[in-house]
Design a binder for these strands. Sequence first.
DNA 1: AACTATTTTTTGGTCTGACAAAAACAACAA
DNA 2: TTGTTGTTTTTGTCAGACCAAAAAATAGTT
Lengths: 239, 239
Amino acid sequence: MDVSNQLKGSDYRAADSVVRALEARIAAGDLVDGDALPSERDLIETFGVSRTVVREAVAALASRGLVESRPRFRPVIRRPGYDAALAAADGVVGHLLARSGGVKNLYDTRVFLEAGLVRQAALSARKEHIDALELALRANENAIPDSEEFYKTDVAFHAVLYEIPRNPVFPAIHKAFTAWLAPHWVKMPRSPERNRVNFQRHSDIFTAIRDRDPDAAEAALQAHLSSAWEYVRGTFNEV
Amino acid sequence: MDVSNQLKGSDYRAADSVVRALEARIAAGDLVDGDALPSERDLIETFGVSRTVVREAVAALASRGLVESRPRFRPVIRRPGYDAALAAADGVVGHLLARSGGVKNLYDTRVFLEAGLVRQAALSARKEHIDALELALRANENAIPDSEEFYKTDVAFHAVLYEIPRNPVFPAIHKAFTAWLAPHWVKMPRSPERNRVNFQRHSDIFTAIRDRDPDAAEAALQAHLSSAWEYVRGTFNEV
DNA sequence: AACTATTTTTTGGTCTGACAAAAACAACAA
DNA sequence: TTGTTGTTTTTGTCAGACCAAAAAATAGTT
Protein backbone atom coordinates (compact mmCIF):
# COMPACT_ATOMS: atom_id res chain seq x y z
CA MET A 1 0.00 0.00 0.00
CA ASP A 2 2.10 2.85 -1.27
CA VAL A 3 0.59 6.24 -0.58
CA SER A 4 3.51 8.32 -1.70
CA ASN A 5 2.67 8.71 -5.36
CA GLN A 6 1.87 12.38 -5.19
CA LEU A 7 3.62 15.38 -6.61
CA LYS A 8 6.43 16.44 -4.42
CA GLY A 9 5.84 20.03 -3.71
CA SER A 10 2.14 20.66 -3.36
CA ASP A 11 -0.01 21.87 -0.50
CA TYR A 12 -0.16 18.39 0.89
CA ARG A 13 2.23 16.97 3.33
CA ALA A 14 3.29 13.42 2.73
CA ALA A 15 2.54 12.73 6.37
CA ASP A 16 -1.12 13.55 5.83
CA SER A 17 -1.60 10.52 3.65
CA VAL A 18 -0.04 8.31 6.24
CA VAL A 19 -2.17 9.87 8.94
CA ARG A 20 -5.33 9.27 6.97
CA ALA A 21 -4.36 5.71 6.21
CA LEU A 22 -3.67 4.95 9.84
CA GLU A 23 -6.83 6.72 10.95
CA ALA A 24 -8.79 4.53 8.57
CA ARG A 25 -7.15 1.41 9.95
CA ILE A 26 -8.02 2.42 13.46
CA ALA A 27 -11.58 3.31 12.58
CA ALA A 28 -11.94 0.04 10.71
CA GLY A 29 -10.82 -1.87 13.76
CA ASP A 30 -7.78 -3.19 11.93
CA LEU A 31 -5.66 -1.69 14.66
CA VAL A 32 -7.41 -2.31 17.93
CA ASP A 33 -7.37 -0.19 21.06
CA GLY A 34 -4.47 -1.09 23.27
CA ASP A 35 -2.40 -2.52 20.47
CA ALA A 36 1.01 -1.14 19.76
CA LEU A 37 1.58 0.70 16.54
CA PRO A 38 3.87 -1.12 14.11
CA SER A 39 7.48 -0.09 14.39
CA GLU A 40 8.59 2.96 12.50
CA ARG A 41 10.69 0.82 10.20
CA ASP A 42 7.68 -1.31 9.42
CA LEU A 43 5.59 1.72 8.58
CA ILE A 44 8.36 2.95 6.30
CA GLU A 45 8.00 -0.22 4.28
CA THR A 46 4.23 -0.30 4.42
CA PHE A 47 3.76 3.21 3.16
CA GLY A 48 6.90 3.67 1.15
CA VAL A 49 7.89 6.92 2.78
CA SER A 50 10.89 8.01 4.74
CA ARG A 51 11.21 7.75 8.46
CA THR A 52 10.92 11.50 8.75
CA VAL A 53 7.43 11.35 7.35
CA VAL A 54 6.42 8.37 9.45
CA ARG A 55 7.51 10.08 12.63
CA GLU A 56 5.67 13.21 11.67
CA ALA A 57 2.54 11.20 11.01
CA VAL A 58 2.74 9.42 14.32
CA ALA A 59 3.22 12.73 16.10
CA ALA A 60 0.10 14.04 14.41
CA LEU A 61 -1.83 10.95 15.45
CA ALA A 62 -0.65 11.48 19.00
CA SER A 63 -1.72 15.10 19.03
CA ARG A 64 -5.16 13.97 17.94
CA GLY A 65 -5.35 11.47 20.74
CA LEU A 66 -5.51 8.46 18.45
CA VAL A 67 -2.30 7.07 19.81
CA GLU A 68 -0.60 7.55 23.12
CA SER A 69 3.14 7.89 22.84
CA ARG A 70 5.57 7.92 25.71
CA PRO A 71 9.16 8.63 24.76
CA ARG A 72 11.12 5.50 23.93
CA PHE A 73 8.01 3.31 23.98
CA ARG A 74 5.99 2.01 21.12
CA PRO A 75 2.95 4.21 20.62
CA VAL A 76 -0.28 2.60 21.72
CA ILE A 77 -3.50 2.79 19.76
CA ARG A 78 -6.28 4.64 21.52
CA ARG A 79 -9.80 4.66 20.24
CA PRO A 80 -10.54 8.11 21.59
CA GLY A 81 -13.47 8.97 23.81
CA TYR A 82 -15.01 12.28 24.67
CA ASP A 83 -12.40 12.87 27.34
CA ALA A 84 -9.67 12.60 24.74
CA ALA A 85 -11.33 15.43 22.84
CA LEU A 86 -11.15 17.69 25.85
CA ALA A 87 -7.65 16.53 26.64
CA ALA A 88 -6.59 17.69 23.20
CA ALA A 89 -7.46 21.22 24.23
CA ASP A 90 -5.26 20.87 27.27
CA GLY A 91 -2.22 22.62 25.89
CA VAL A 92 -4.07 25.74 24.85
CA VAL A 93 -6.18 25.91 27.97
CA GLY A 94 -3.02 26.12 30.01
CA HIS A 95 -2.16 29.36 28.29
CA LEU A 96 -5.68 30.69 28.59
CA LEU A 97 -5.75 30.03 32.30
CA ALA A 98 -2.53 31.93 32.72
CA ARG A 99 -4.19 34.94 31.15
CA SER A 100 -5.89 37.51 33.31
CA GLY A 101 -9.46 36.49 33.96
CA GLY A 102 -8.89 33.06 32.46
CA VAL A 103 -9.67 31.09 35.56
CA LYS A 104 -12.77 33.14 36.25
CA ASN A 105 -14.08 32.59 32.76
CA LEU A 106 -13.65 28.87 33.02
CA TYR A 107 -15.06 28.71 36.48
CA ASP A 108 -18.09 30.75 35.49
CA THR A 109 -18.68 28.33 32.66
CA ARG A 110 -18.58 25.51 35.12
CA VAL A 111 -21.03 27.19 37.45
CA PHE A 112 -23.33 27.84 34.55
CA LEU A 113 -23.18 24.25 33.43
CA GLU A 114 -23.75 22.78 36.86
CA ALA A 115 -26.62 25.12 37.47
CA GLY A 116 -28.27 23.58 34.46
CA LEU A 117 -27.35 20.12 35.64
CA VAL A 118 -28.91 20.39 39.07
CA ARG A 119 -31.96 22.00 37.56
CA GLN A 120 -32.44 19.14 35.17
CA ALA A 121 -31.58 16.67 37.89
CA ALA A 122 -34.36 18.07 40.02
CA LEU A 123 -36.73 17.74 37.13
CA SER A 124 -35.90 14.33 35.83
CA ALA A 125 -33.24 12.44 37.77
CA ARG A 126 -33.95 8.75 38.13
CA LYS A 127 -34.05 7.13 41.49
CA GLU A 128 -30.77 5.35 40.86
CA HIS A 129 -29.03 8.66 40.36
CA ILE A 130 -30.60 10.15 43.43
CA ASP A 131 -29.39 7.13 45.34
CA ALA A 132 -25.92 7.57 43.91
CA LEU A 133 -26.05 11.20 44.90
CA GLU A 134 -27.02 10.31 48.43
CA LEU A 135 -24.23 7.78 48.62
CA ALA A 136 -21.71 10.35 47.47
CA LEU A 137 -23.13 12.75 50.01
CA ARG A 138 -22.62 10.26 52.84
CA ALA A 139 -19.05 9.67 51.78
CA ASN A 140 -18.57 13.41 51.72
CA GLU A 141 -19.94 13.73 55.23
CA ASN A 142 -17.68 11.00 56.58
CA ALA A 143 -14.65 12.72 55.08
CA ILE A 144 -15.19 16.03 56.82
CA PRO A 145 -12.29 15.55 59.25
CA ASP A 146 -9.84 14.63 56.49
CA SER A 147 -9.45 17.57 54.13
CA GLU A 148 -7.71 15.62 51.41
CA GLU A 149 -10.33 12.90 51.44
CA PHE A 150 -12.99 15.56 51.56
CA TYR A 151 -11.72 17.06 48.34
CA LYS A 152 -11.97 13.70 46.62
CA THR A 153 -15.49 13.03 47.78
CA ASP A 154 -16.37 16.60 46.86
CA VAL A 155 -15.27 15.99 43.30
CA ALA A 156 -17.06 12.64 43.31
CA PHE A 157 -20.29 14.27 44.43
CA HIS A 158 -20.21 16.76 41.61
CA ALA A 159 -19.26 13.98 39.22
CA VAL A 160 -22.57 12.29 39.90
CA LEU A 161 -24.34 15.42 38.72
CA TYR A 162 -22.57 15.13 35.39
CA GLU A 163 -23.66 11.53 34.99
CA ILE A 164 -27.34 12.21 35.38
CA PRO A 165 -28.06 13.31 31.80
CA ARG A 166 -26.54 9.99 30.63
CA ASN A 167 -24.70 11.85 27.94
CA PRO A 168 -21.01 10.84 27.82
CA VAL A 169 -20.03 14.37 26.94
CA PHE A 170 -20.78 15.64 30.43
CA PRO A 171 -18.53 13.35 32.47
CA ALA A 172 -15.75 14.23 30.04
CA ILE A 173 -16.36 17.91 30.65
CA HIS A 174 -16.29 17.36 34.37
CA LYS A 175 -13.00 15.55 34.11
CA ALA A 176 -11.54 18.37 32.08
CA PHE A 177 -12.83 21.04 34.43
CA THR A 178 -11.41 19.41 37.53
CA ALA A 179 -8.11 18.77 35.80
CA TRP A 180 -7.84 22.38 34.69
CA LEU A 181 -9.00 24.02 37.86
CA ALA A 182 -7.38 21.65 40.35
CA PRO A 183 -4.00 23.39 40.33
CA HIS A 184 -5.63 26.61 41.46
CA TRP A 185 -7.82 24.76 43.86
CA VAL A 186 -5.24 22.97 45.92
CA LYS A 187 -3.84 26.28 47.05
CA MET A 188 -7.09 27.05 48.80
CA PRO A 189 -6.91 26.89 52.57
CA ARG A 190 -8.84 23.93 53.96
CA SER A 191 -10.16 23.01 57.32
CA PRO A 192 -12.77 20.71 58.84
CA GLU A 193 -14.94 23.72 59.62
CA ARG A 194 -14.81 24.83 56.03
CA ASN A 195 -15.48 21.26 54.92
CA ARG A 196 -18.53 21.14 57.11
CA VAL A 197 -19.93 24.25 55.45
CA ASN A 198 -19.33 22.77 52.03
CA PHE A 199 -20.92 19.52 53.02
CA GLN A 200 -23.96 21.42 54.19
CA ARG A 201 -24.20 23.04 50.79
CA HIS A 202 -23.95 19.69 49.11
CA SER A 203 -26.65 18.46 51.36
CA ASP A 204 -28.86 21.40 50.40
CA ILE A 205 -28.36 20.63 46.74
CA PHE A 206 -29.19 17.01 47.26
CA THR A 207 -32.32 17.78 49.23
CA ALA A 208 -33.58 20.16 46.60
CA ILE A 209 -33.01 17.61 43.86
CA ARG A 210 -34.69 14.86 45.83
CA ASP A 211 -37.63 17.14 46.53
CA ARG A 212 -37.87 17.98 42.84
CA ASP A 213 -37.36 21.68 43.33
CA PRO A 214 -35.24 22.98 40.44
CA ASP A 215 -35.15 26.58 41.57
CA ALA A 216 -33.98 25.66 45.04
CA ALA A 217 -31.42 23.27 43.59
CA GLU A 218 -30.02 25.93 41.31
CA ALA A 219 -29.96 28.49 44.08
CA ALA A 220 -28.15 26.10 46.40
CA LEU A 221 -25.58 25.25 43.81
CA GLN A 222 -25.07 28.87 42.89
CA ALA A 223 -24.54 29.74 46.52
CA HIS A 224 -22.16 26.86 46.94
CA LEU A 225 -19.93 27.60 44.00
CA SER A 226 -19.98 31.36 44.44
CA SER A 227 -18.76 31.15 47.97
CA ALA A 228 -16.15 28.63 46.90
CA TRP A 229 -14.95 31.12 44.33
CA GLU A 230 -14.59 33.84 46.90
CA TYR A 231 -12.38 31.45 48.77
CA VAL A 232 -10.01 30.64 45.95
CA ARG A 233 -10.08 34.14 44.61
CA GLY A 234 -7.58 35.25 47.20
CA THR A 235 -4.98 32.84 45.89
CA PHE A 236 -4.65 34.76 42.62
CA ASN A 237 -2.78 37.89 41.90
CA GLU A 238 -5.02 38.66 39.00
CA VAL A 239 -7.93 41.05 39.03
CA MET B 1 20.25 30.11 24.79
CA ASP B 2 21.25 26.47 24.46
CA VAL B 3 18.68 24.09 25.84
CA SER B 4 20.23 20.90 24.61
CA ASN B 5 22.46 20.04 27.53
CA GLN B 6 20.49 17.06 28.69
CA LEU B 7 21.23 13.37 28.74
CA LYS B 8 20.39 11.72 25.49
CA GLY B 9 18.12 8.88 26.34
CA SER B 10 15.82 9.93 29.11
CA ASP B 11 12.08 10.39 29.35
CA TYR B 12 12.38 13.85 27.92
CA ARG B 13 12.23 14.69 24.31
CA ALA B 14 14.63 17.32 23.18
CA ALA B 15 11.77 18.96 21.33
CA ASP B 16 9.96 19.59 24.61
CA SER B 17 12.60 22.04 25.75
CA VAL B 18 12.33 23.93 22.51
CA VAL B 19 8.55 23.93 22.75
CA ARG B 20 8.66 25.33 26.25
CA ALA B 21 11.18 27.96 25.29
CA LEU B 22 9.10 29.11 22.36
CA GLU B 23 5.92 29.02 24.42
CA ALA B 24 7.60 31.26 26.94
CA ARG B 25 8.65 33.68 24.24
CA ILE B 26 5.16 33.86 22.90
CA ALA B 27 3.61 34.31 26.32
CA ALA B 28 6.16 37.00 27.10
CA GLY B 29 5.24 38.87 23.96
CA ASP B 30 8.70 38.45 22.55
CA LEU B 31 7.12 36.81 19.55
CA VAL B 32 3.99 38.74 18.72
CA ASP B 33 0.78 37.49 17.20
CA GLY B 34 0.94 37.56 13.43
CA ASP B 35 4.70 37.44 13.30
CA ALA B 36 6.41 34.67 11.42
CA LEU B 37 8.42 32.16 13.36
CA PRO B 38 12.17 32.40 12.78
CA SER B 39 13.45 30.10 10.10
CA GLU B 40 14.29 26.55 11.06
CA ARG B 41 17.97 27.21 10.57
CA ASP B 42 17.76 30.16 12.91
CA LEU B 43 16.09 28.06 15.54
CA ILE B 44 18.77 25.42 15.10
CA GLU B 45 21.37 28.00 16.00
CA THR B 46 19.36 29.57 18.77
CA PHE B 47 18.65 26.36 20.58
CA GLY B 48 21.60 24.28 19.55
CA VAL B 49 19.60 21.32 18.39
CA SER B 50 19.23 19.57 15.10
CA ARG B 51 16.69 20.41 12.49
CA THR B 52 14.82 17.23 13.26
CA VAL B 53 14.12 18.46 16.74
CA VAL B 54 13.22 21.95 15.62
CA ARG B 55 10.68 20.62 13.16
CA GLU B 56 9.21 18.36 15.77
CA ALA B 57 8.90 21.28 18.15
CA VAL B 58 7.21 23.47 15.58
CA ALA B 59 4.79 20.68 14.76
CA ALA B 60 3.93 20.41 18.44
CA LEU B 61 3.39 24.15 18.65
CA ALA B 62 1.09 23.93 15.67
CA SER B 63 -0.93 21.13 17.18
CA ARG B 64 -1.41 23.28 20.26
CA GLY B 65 -2.63 26.16 18.18
CA LEU B 66 0.22 28.46 19.11
CA VAL B 67 1.38 28.69 15.54
CA GLU B 68 -0.45 28.26 12.29
CA SER B 69 1.52 26.42 9.71
CA ARG B 70 0.59 25.94 6.09
CA PRO B 71 2.89 23.69 4.11
CA ARG B 72 5.80 25.53 2.54
CA PHE B 73 5.00 28.73 4.40
CA ARG B 74 6.67 30.14 7.42
CA PRO B 75 4.61 29.31 10.49
CA VAL B 76 2.77 32.27 11.95
CA ILE B 77 2.54 33.00 15.64
CA ARG B 78 -0.96 32.83 17.05
CA ARG B 79 -1.74 33.97 20.55
CA PRO B 80 -4.54 31.50 21.03
CA GLY B 81 -8.02 32.39 22.16
CA TYR B 82 -10.80 30.25 23.50
CA ASP B 83 -11.80 29.23 20.02
CA ALA B 84 -8.34 27.81 19.40
CA ALA B 85 -8.83 25.57 22.40
CA LEU B 86 -11.96 24.10 20.93
CA ALA B 87 -10.37 23.90 17.51
CA ALA B 88 -7.66 21.73 19.01
CA ALA B 89 -10.29 19.14 19.79
CA ASP B 90 -11.41 19.20 16.20
CA GLY B 91 -9.54 16.15 15.04
CA VAL B 92 -10.90 13.89 17.74
CA VAL B 93 -14.43 15.22 17.51
CA GLY B 94 -14.50 14.18 13.89
CA HIS B 95 -14.06 10.60 14.94
CA LEU B 96 -16.56 10.89 17.74
CA LEU B 97 -19.20 12.27 15.43
CA ALA B 98 -18.69 9.35 13.08
CA ARG B 99 -19.52 7.02 15.92
CA SER B 100 -23.05 5.86 16.48
CA GLY B 101 -24.90 8.33 18.64
CA GLY B 102 -22.08 10.84 18.39
CA VAL B 103 -24.08 13.57 16.74
CA LYS B 104 -26.97 13.12 19.13
CA ASN B 105 -24.69 13.40 22.13
CA LEU B 106 -23.20 16.61 20.87
CA TYR B 107 -26.52 18.03 19.84
CA ASP B 108 -28.05 17.22 23.20
CA THR B 109 -25.20 19.02 24.85
CA ARG B 110 -25.91 22.01 22.73
CA VAL B 111 -29.59 21.98 23.56
CA PHE B 112 -28.75 21.71 27.23
CA LEU B 113 -26.38 24.64 27.03
CA GLU B 114 -28.71 26.87 25.12
CA ALA B 115 -31.56 26.06 27.45
CA GLY B 116 -29.43 27.46 30.21
CA LEU B 117 -28.49 30.43 28.08
CA VAL B 118 -32.02 31.53 27.28
CA ARG B 119 -33.02 31.01 30.88
CA GLN B 120 -30.25 33.25 32.10
CA ALA B 121 -30.95 35.67 29.29
CA ALA B 122 -34.53 35.98 30.45
CA LEU B 123 -33.33 36.61 33.95
CA SER B 124 -30.54 39.04 33.38
CA ALA B 125 -29.98 40.08 29.79
CA ARG B 126 -29.13 43.73 29.36
CA LYS B 127 -31.13 45.92 27.09
CA GLU B 128 -28.32 46.07 24.59
CA HIS B 129 -28.39 42.32 24.22
CA ILE B 130 -32.13 42.25 23.89
CA ASP B 131 -31.81 44.88 21.18
CA ALA B 132 -29.16 42.80 19.45
CA LEU B 133 -31.43 39.80 19.69
CA GLU B 134 -34.28 41.72 18.15
CA LEU B 135 -32.05 42.92 15.36
CA ALA B 136 -30.95 39.36 14.62
CA LEU B 137 -34.56 38.32 14.68
CA ARG B 138 -35.50 40.93 12.10
CA ALA B 139 -32.70 39.82 9.83
CA ASN B 140 -33.88 36.28 10.27
CA GLU B 141 -37.39 37.26 9.29
CA ASN B 142 -36.25 39.06 6.20
CA ALA B 143 -34.28 36.03 5.10
CA ILE B 144 -37.22 33.64 5.14
CA PRO B 145 -37.46 33.43 1.34
CA ASP B 146 -33.75 32.72 0.91
CA SER B 147 -32.89 29.44 2.62
CA GLU B 148 -29.17 29.93 2.51
CA GLU B 149 -29.39 33.40 3.96
CA PHE B 150 -31.88 32.11 6.50
CA TYR B 151 -29.36 29.57 7.76
CA LYS B 152 -26.81 32.32 8.30
CA THR B 153 -29.17 34.56 10.18
CA ASP B 154 -30.33 31.53 12.13
CA VAL B 155 -26.79 30.90 13.30
CA ALA B 156 -26.34 34.60 13.99
CA PHE B 157 -29.46 34.68 16.15
CA HIS B 158 -28.23 31.83 18.28
CA ALA B 159 -24.80 33.43 18.41
CA VAL B 160 -26.29 36.40 20.22
CA LEU B 161 -27.51 34.07 22.94
CA TYR B 162 -23.95 32.93 23.51
CA GLU B 163 -22.75 36.49 23.86
CA ILE B 164 -25.13 37.44 26.60
CA PRO B 165 -23.16 36.01 29.52
CA ARG B 166 -20.20 38.13 28.39
CA ASN B 167 -17.93 35.17 28.94
CA PRO B 168 -15.63 34.59 25.95
CA VAL B 169 -15.87 30.85 26.46
CA PHE B 170 -19.43 30.75 25.19
CA PRO B 171 -18.98 32.30 21.77
CA ALA B 172 -16.09 29.91 21.25
CA ILE B 173 -18.33 26.99 22.12
CA HIS B 174 -20.94 28.23 19.72
CA LYS B 175 -18.41 28.47 16.97
CA ALA B 176 -17.24 24.95 17.63
CA PHE B 177 -20.76 23.58 17.78
CA THR B 178 -21.81 25.09 14.50
CA ALA B 179 -18.57 23.99 12.84
CA TRP B 180 -19.02 20.43 14.03
CA LEU B 181 -22.70 20.08 13.37
CA ALA B 182 -22.87 22.08 10.14
CA PRO B 183 -21.88 19.16 7.89
CA HIS B 184 -24.86 17.21 9.13
CA TRP B 185 -27.06 20.24 9.01
CA VAL B 186 -26.64 21.23 5.42
CA LYS B 187 -28.15 17.95 4.32
CA MET B 188 -31.40 18.93 5.95
CA PRO B 189 -34.16 19.78 3.50
CA ARG B 190 -35.01 23.47 3.58
CA SER B 191 -37.88 25.52 2.39
CA PRO B 192 -39.43 28.93 3.04
CA GLU B 193 -42.31 27.25 4.86
CA ARG B 194 -39.93 25.48 7.14
CA ASN B 195 -37.97 28.70 7.58
CA ARG B 196 -41.13 30.47 8.62
CA VAL B 197 -41.77 27.90 11.32
CA ASN B 198 -38.24 28.27 12.61
CA PHE B 199 -38.50 32.02 12.58
CA GLN B 200 -41.68 31.78 14.61
CA ARG B 201 -39.82 29.71 17.17
CA HIS B 202 -37.04 32.27 17.28
CA SER B 203 -39.63 34.91 17.78
CA ASP B 204 -41.16 32.95 20.66
CA ILE B 205 -37.78 32.68 22.30
CA PHE B 206 -37.14 36.36 21.90
CA THR B 207 -40.50 37.33 23.28
CA ALA B 208 -40.06 35.15 26.33
CA ILE B 209 -36.64 36.63 27.01
CA ARG B 210 -37.88 40.16 26.56
CA ASP B 211 -40.77 39.45 28.89
CA ARG B 212 -38.38 38.03 31.46
CA ASP B 213 -39.98 34.63 31.55
CA PRO B 214 -37.22 32.02 31.89
CA ASP B 215 -39.51 29.00 31.88
CA ALA B 216 -41.25 30.08 28.71
CA ALA B 217 -37.92 30.88 27.10
CA GLU B 218 -36.51 27.50 27.94
CA ALA B 219 -39.64 25.75 26.75
CA ALA B 220 -39.60 27.63 23.47
CA LEU B 221 -35.98 26.84 22.86
CA GLN B 222 -36.45 23.21 23.76
CA ALA B 223 -39.35 22.97 21.36
CA HIS B 224 -37.34 24.69 18.66
CA LEU B 225 -34.27 22.53 18.88
CA SER B 226 -36.13 19.29 19.43
CA SER B 227 -38.19 19.71 16.30
CA ALA B 228 -35.05 20.70 14.43
CA TRP B 229 -33.47 17.47 15.55
CA GLU B 230 -36.35 15.43 14.27
CA TYR B 231 -35.75 17.08 10.97
CA VAL B 232 -32.07 16.26 10.67
CA ARG B 233 -32.47 12.88 12.24
CA GLY B 234 -33.67 11.44 8.97
CA THR B 235 -30.40 12.29 7.27
CA PHE B 236 -28.48 9.78 9.37
CA ASN B 237 -28.25 6.06 8.96
CA GLU B 238 -27.46 5.68 12.63
CA VAL B 239 -29.91 4.67 15.32
C1' DA C 1 9.71 -26.43 34.69
C1' DA C 2 9.82 -21.90 36.48
C1' DC C 3 12.31 -18.05 37.53
C1' DT C 4 16.34 -14.83 37.16
C1' DA C 5 20.41 -12.83 35.20
C1' DT C 6 22.74 -11.80 31.00
C1' DT C 7 23.49 -11.14 26.26
C1' DT C 8 21.70 -9.97 21.65
C1' DT C 9 18.49 -7.73 18.66
C1' DT C 10 15.22 -4.31 17.76
C1' DT C 11 13.53 0.17 18.10
C1' DG C 12 12.92 5.13 19.08
C1' DG C 13 15.35 9.73 19.57
C1' DT C 14 18.69 12.60 17.54
C1' DC C 15 22.15 14.13 14.31
C1' DT C 16 24.27 15.15 9.68
C1' DG C 17 24.13 16.02 5.03
C1' DA C 18 21.76 16.27 0.74
C1' DC C 19 18.38 17.71 -3.00
C1' DA C 20 14.13 19.52 -5.31
C1' DA C 21 10.55 22.70 -5.35
C1' DA C 22 8.35 26.47 -3.58
C1' DA C 23 8.63 30.99 -1.41
C1' DA C 24 11.00 35.24 -0.32
C1' DC C 25 13.95 38.55 -1.98
C1' DA C 26 16.52 41.56 -5.17
C1' DA C 27 17.56 43.51 -9.56
C1' DC C 28 15.81 45.24 -13.39
C1' DA C 29 12.51 46.85 -17.15
C1' DA C 30 8.25 49.04 -18.55
C1' DT D 1 4.61 52.38 -9.26
C1' DT D 2 4.02 48.14 -11.20
C1' DG D 3 5.42 43.85 -13.43
C1' DT D 4 9.06 40.55 -14.86
C1' DT D 5 12.96 37.84 -14.20
C1' DG D 6 16.76 35.79 -11.84
C1' DT D 7 18.96 34.64 -7.26
C1' DT D 8 18.94 33.17 -2.60
C1' DT D 9 16.43 31.16 1.40
C1' DT D 10 13.66 27.99 3.25
C1' DT D 11 10.71 24.06 3.74
C1' DG D 12 9.51 19.17 2.70
C1' DT D 13 11.48 14.92 2.07
C1' DC D 14 14.94 11.46 1.76
C1' DA D 15 18.98 8.45 3.18
C1' DG D 16 22.12 6.81 6.35
C1' DA D 17 24.27 6.77 10.84
C1' DC D 18 24.78 6.49 16.02
C1' DC D 19 23.43 5.83 20.85
C1' DA D 20 20.87 4.34 24.53
C1' DA D 21 16.75 2.26 26.08
C1' DA D 22 13.38 -1.39 25.45
C1' DA D 23 12.23 -5.93 23.93
C1' DA D 24 13.44 -10.41 22.88
C1' DA D 25 16.34 -14.28 23.22
C1' DT D 26 19.50 -16.89 25.67
C1' DA D 27 21.96 -18.96 29.42
C1' DG D 28 22.16 -20.12 34.02
C1' DT D 29 20.13 -21.35 38.55
C1' DT D 30 17.08 -23.34 41.83
